[in-house]
Design a protein around this nucleic acid. Structure first.
Lengths: 332, 332
DNA sequence: CTGAAAGCGCTTACAG
DNA sequence: CTGAAAGCGCTTACAG
């Protein structure tokens, strides 16, 4: 079948150990090294990574476990993780869990079978509550969502602060009945709701965040219903790109003008948020950096397992656009 | 360290061969099977996939080599490939090549080292021209872009037809000077240009497609310059989602009204194309199916290497939106 | 610096 | 149906 280390050894007239050392940059005389390199090229030899992993007990592989790679946030993160991983000579295995705790469990089992070096994980709230990092042979870095309190490294957005910024921006612009939609499957939703409530309470205003599935469809439905109620909000905050999209669709379908009749703001600076109407006000997350830092933290821990557990909290950036320019004066 | 098959064997009082057979659904008596399964559960045993792969000579892994996972087309494809792969008990290794032939070569070498079962590949034109599928030990399925003529399975859009549909639609709507932007790194761009020229020639109209890097930035620049020329087009066709975005930005920056002063249409039904202004007319690609079919073709070939080489060509779907409603009458 | 030998954790003929 | 043994392709002590 394919050429193996033994073939290279005979072609170069050395032992397999020497070939292995050349490949691994071990101590080899210049002459033998040259002969081996010649033979590798001539034969087109490619080491078998399964054999190498089995023998060396290092898989040089990291798992990336997220809900759906098609969520632009995770798309961006994954690209950063890949870049950093390949630079460090590691492979990435990507897993989509669809916010489903059973799939999460299944993929984590798979990661064990792969004997991955580590995992970068964005868990559902359910999973993060009752699972024990100690039950796994590999370190984990949580991204976007907190894992079990203090058990693992994490890189997160300051969700509370971001929500506060968004709410205060809306209030400054003259909106007063601020509604909000949060995802019900992650800790992120709860944290953002926390900031939202805090900011309103500070001004003595009532809050009324609603929790729905973190999808465009669920958000669209929720907003459509909300508009039919007695006192609908005059501004809406949506907790991720998909939900912001759903909210926008519902408002358009109902003919509610933005920003006059309804202010609209949310999370994730996706391409379309800058193109739609006069633009949607959003909190931009440092997506690429989140992936990059997660990978750095993982590599650091692989170097030194005794490192203290770390949480890196990044600030989002408020991008003000037309969708929050303020309510129409005519209503006052 | 971690529990291995030998531990399970002693715990169950059987040989390692029997444990292996239970795991692989081989012929084992009900009694021994039960004892082994008990032991597997008790010990939390997880087979080591590197060892399994080395011994069985089956990696159960496919490589997915694309230019950038953040291109929504490839994001969608990758999700479909993952889904199909995991269902077939296979793993996916994702590689981003950034339209760079050197990275492509590097990752294909890596695929050899992984001893992948097969690769799903979207090559640059340069790579596809002078590379030999026979030089690899694994089968490939090309997606989105033709590989070396007739050497490998492929699943493609009918790019020529799609371009024709787009051009005829623009002509029907009253546009007459139709410009076009195509990516210069793939066969896809050439094919789409072919359809574009053919459709115009049929009506006796001049064509003038321009080839640029398939990025939003390059397209934006190209359109900005085009607008300054003596006779700019009255409609523009852009060959993928990123270029369509760039074109849109350039038109907005120049204050050119769509669809009155300039019709705009392109490829890829990305979310924002339906949200912007009165919507952009696009050809929708069956993204998920492309990934799904690619994986099916790969699995079929792994079953039977003697299968004839196949090309699956899918039709796009024209979605007519406001951006091509027709030029303003005032000009006539 | 170099080589012979052991062994990583499995699967798979081979016998029985 | 079951087990003892060989071997997948490497790396890594161990001697020299």
């Amino acid at each position: 079948m394919s050429v193996k280390i033994k073939d290279v050894a005979s072609a170069a007239g050395v032992s397999v150990a020497t070939v292995s050392r050349v490949l691994g940059n071990g101590p080899v005389s210049a002459e033998l090294r040259a002969r081996v390199e010649r033979a590798v090229l001539d034969l087109g030899y490619r080491p078998n990574l399964s054999a190498r992993r089995l023998r060396s007990q290092h898989s040089q592989t990291v798992g990336l476990v997220v809900s759906d790679i098609r969520n632009p946030f995770f798309t961006g993160v994954s690209r950063a993780v890949e870049d950093a991983a390949y630079q460090a000579g590691m492979r990435v295995i990507l897993c989509n869990t669809d916010e489903n705790p059973e799939k999460e469990a299944m993929y984590l089992r798979l990661m064990q079978e792969e004997r991955v070096s580590g995992v970068i994980f964005s868990p559902t709230r359910e999973t993060s509550q009752h699972f024990n990092v100690a039950g796994f042979d590999f370190p984990m870095v949580m991204i976007d969502r907190t894992g079990p309190a203090g058990q693992a490294d994490a890189v997160l957005l300051d969700n509370r602060l971001a929500s506060i910024q968004l709410v205060e921006h809306l209030l400054d612009r003259g909106y007063s009945r601020i509604g909000a939609l949060f995802g019900n499957t992650s800790t992120t939703g709860s944290e953002r709701n926390g900031g939202y409530e805090e900011a309103l309470k500070l001004r003595g205003l009532p809050s009324g965040g609603r929790f729905v599935a973190p999808t465009a469809e669920a958000a669209e439905l929720a907003v459509a219903q909300w508009l039919k109620e007695a006192t609908p909000p005059d501004a809406l905050l949506a907790s991720n790109g998909l939900m912001l999209l759903g909210a926008l669709r519902a408002l358009r379908a109902a003919g509610v003008s933005i920003p006059a009749r309804m202010g609209l703001a949310g999370f994730d600076n996706e391409i379309w948020t800058g193109l739609v109407g006069e633009g949607l006000t959003v909190i931009e997350q440092p997506v690429y950096q989140i992936g990059q830092i997660a990978m750095e933290m993982l590599l650091a821990r692989l170097e030194d397992a005794s490192l203290p557990i770390r949480r890196v909290v990044l600030n989002g950036r408020l991008i003000e656009r037309g969708s929050t320019r303020g309510p129409s004066r005519s209503e006052h």
